[in-house]
């Protein structure tokens, strides 16, 4: 087989031209037809898929692929190995700070999202606030209802076993509040005082919970009578005799971030999707199912009137709570965790 010089030259030119065109398209504002979404799984991811993903895919043709679960370790391994497949990832407030410090995430493209009105604390350079969640006091309907963390700590007038979170970020601030620290003076957290306060409740704590479903189940099983819990997890147990309120609740935000080095075309598709998340009507649909409310200040008007007290960010409930201080936790996480483990082993 022989090729003329000319034919070879032509082919080379054509190939080169094709490459130039392909690269040109790639670098333009091209939108991928799919992106990968690191999600925690469970009820919230299901609701997200049904209320946000499906209509979005139907309208734009962009397919969203779930990567479950979205642990911090997985994100770090993915970014540090240089093989970034996901364009969105689910993170907590403390983890958002950690991810920033470890250079694992890149800025959100707010210009492209051009969201509707959002609570200002939900808009960060590196994080899109998806929903609020709150660590609240929960109890069985057949015991005396506590009105404050001081009541929760008072085992004489509110007898019964307790369950508290094994994550210090959800328990130590409560311990400080129970000892009488005023909510506006909570941070910087007085660790000595918080641990002294924990010493008092320790004999009554039978379980330190590690997963969100645990406290609700423990209450339903009558294994404990009082627990701190994430509001969405106990709101769905009302029928089964679990009660909660938002007094001195620890209000926190769940974030979506972009892993550093996400494929640009897929990131653009992901940003397009995030715009959906600023729509209060959709946020209301989502909140009705999981009781975690989104970023829109006008959301409260769209929530069911009879259940308004169950949502963390109605104006009345939001005023009762204390917003988490991710920065403080980031700066002190290491120290607190060691002390927390040491304290627990000392029991």
């Amino acid at each position: 087989m022989r090729f003329s010089r000319r034919a070879v030259g032509m082919t080379c030119t054509l190939v080169a031209a094709a490459i130039v065109v392909a690269v040109g398209i790639g670098s333009a504002q091209e939108m991928a037809k799919r992106f990968v979404f690191g999600s925690p799984g469970g009820v919230s991811t299901e609701a997200n898929q049904e209320i946000f993903w499906k209509p979005f895919t139907a309208r734009t043709g962009i397919e969203i692929i779930a990567e479950v679960p979205s642990s911090f370790g997985k994100l770090r391994a993915m970014v540090q190995s240089g093989k970034v497949t996901a364009s969105l990832w689910d993170l907590g407030t403390l983890q958002l700070e950690q991810a920033k410090a470890l250079d694992l995430i890149e800025p959100i493209d707010w210009d492209q999202i051009s969201p509707g009105p959002m609570f200002p604390e939900m808009r960060q350079q590196y994080g899109f606030g998806q929903t609020y969640f709150s660590t609240v006091m929960a109890w069985r309907a057949d015991v005396k209802a506590p009105q404050s963390w001081q009541d929760f700590w008072n085992v004489k007038d509110f007898p019964g076993k307790r369950s508290l979170s094994n994550f210090p970020a959800y328990t130590l601030p409560i311990a400080a509040l129970a000892d009488g620290v005023p909510p506006d003076k909570l941070y910087p957290l007085d660790l000595d005082r918080a641990f002294r306060s924990l010493d008092r409740i320790k004999p009554s704590v039978s379980v330190w919970w590690t997963t969100g479903a645990q406290p609700g189940q423990l209450l339903v099983d009558n294994e404990v009578q009082y627990a701190n819990a994430w509001n969405g997890r106990v709101a769905t147990l009302w029928e089964q005799g679990v009660r909660h309120n938002f007094n001195q609740g620890l209000l926190d935000i769940a974030w979506w971030v972009v892993p550093k080095g996400a494929p640009p075309a897929e990131k653009r598709a992901a940003m397009l999707f995030l715009h959906e998340w600023s729509d209060p009507a959709k946020q209301a649909e989502y909140a009705k199912r999981v009781y975690y409310t989104g970023s829109s200040p006008s959301l409260a008007a769209l929530l069911p009137k009879d259940k308004l007290h169950m949502f963390p960010t109605t104006p009345e409930n939001k005023a009762k709570q204390i917003l988490a201080n991710g920065r403080w936790w980031f700066e002190n996480a290491d120290l607190v965790e060691k002390r927390w483990q040491a304290w627990k082993l000392g029991q």
């Binding site: 642990s71 911090f72 370790g73 770090r76 950690q98 470890l102 094994n166 994550f167 039978s206 379980v207 330190w208 919970w209 590690t210 996480a333 290491d334 965790e337 483990q341 627990k344 082993l345 029991q347």
Partner: peptide, 24 residues
Amino acid sequence: AILGGGRVTMIANMLDLLINQLPD
């Protein structure tokens, strides 16, 4: 993790903490 009720910490639980929570 399940039967210890958070009162019994073993090495693997500690590692989970160090990898996914702290992270160290």
